[in-house]
Design a protein around this nucleic acid. Structure first.
Lengths: 175, 175
DNA sequence: GAAATCTGGTTAACATGTTAAGTGATGCCG
DNA sequence: CGGCATCACTTAACATGTTAACCAGATTTC
């Protein structure tokens, strides 16, 4: 049910001040659209992950680790799209649960090397079928072709915005 | 059977033995695409908001309030797409900063009525120009028509997935 | 080759996401 | 009228997002 907030002629004589600042319709803003869409998707995955004692981010990390042998922490953060502090906390937890293994690079003692453990792989194998089934259902429901198009448009958006300079005090010109 | 990884050293031959659990390519998953796209967008807004002492969620709330006279807390949560607990905390903070005003409904003492204050409106008027300029730049860069298409596809995705049943042992049914 | 600097990673501090439990007000049913 | 499920939040507890500060190891500089 769409709420009608279309500004007709709200009388300023009301004791409350006028509330119309010239801005886009709130619900149509791009960040909101993306947020709602993502939540609509994740809502279906979270229960399954939760049944296996995993959060969404922990699952992202395990999945990223499952596709490589070992990986540096910084690179893992990039792939799993997590900030350093979040990743540090999660890795500490996953290590305590023996789902991953860590060591330091011989050549550079600053770098931490991470890999998934046998136990972690087992967990992935337990979660993957349900996860894939959900994804397949979504694809059927939305349409495989349309989904591919959407992914392309999202990638294009990312690429497009990466060349816009960020506002603030940064003077770096790029593009 | 999956080979257990040795924490001592990695043979060059092992680098080829990438652990393969049958799953989609990680970076192409829909949740990741949506997350990255949203972050690519928000990255441009956050500095401006931060300059005005606002977080993204606080800004969402103020914007939602600016389009109505007063609104119930639950309805505000729906419009601003925030969970109850988050909203409670943020409203407490915004009220302490005198950016909003609260009272209870006479007819139902459980319901809280929220409205933006003059100070809140002033803040919005200070932020809106920059925010709109950023949005306009994004629209030019990506293409207005393409952006509208994207929004439509995101709305369609939402709508599509809302009709899928949620899985999991723990019944997370939500009519 | 020691000081300055940089880099990879962690900790800290605060705000929000997420689920569960708590609280007071309302409505229903007997 | 009174018990009780429900409702509209609010608190609590834990995990993550976000920025800043920190620290040890590595690199550069003089």
């Amino acid at each position: 049910m769409t709420r009608k907030k279309s500004p007709k002629s709200v009388d300023p004589a009301d004791k409350d001040k006028i509330r119309r600042v010239p801005m886009r319709e709130f619900s149509r803003s791009l960040p909101m659209s993306l947020l709602r869409a993502r939540e609509a998707v994740m809502r279906h995955f979270r229960p399954s992950l939760r049944d296996h004692g995993l959060t969404e981010q922990q699952w992202r990390i395990l999945r990223a680790l499952a596709s490589v042998d070992t990986i540096e922490v910084t690179e893992l953060a990039r792939v799993a799209f997590l900030l350093g502090p979040s990743l540090s906390r999660i890795l500490r937890d996953l290590e305590a649960r023996h789902l991953i293994e860590r060591r330091v690079a011989k050549a550079d003692l600053r770098r931490g090397m991470v890999s998934i453990s046998a136990r972690g792989l087992k967990l992935i194998e337990a979660v993957a079928p349900t996860s894939e089934a959900i994804y397949a259902a979504m694809t059927r429901r939305y349409g495989a072709h349309k989904l591919a198009d959407l992914q392309d448009m999202l990638a294009a958006l990312e690429n497009s915005l990466s060349e816009l300079r960020v506002e603030g005090n940064s003077q770096a010109n790029r593009g």
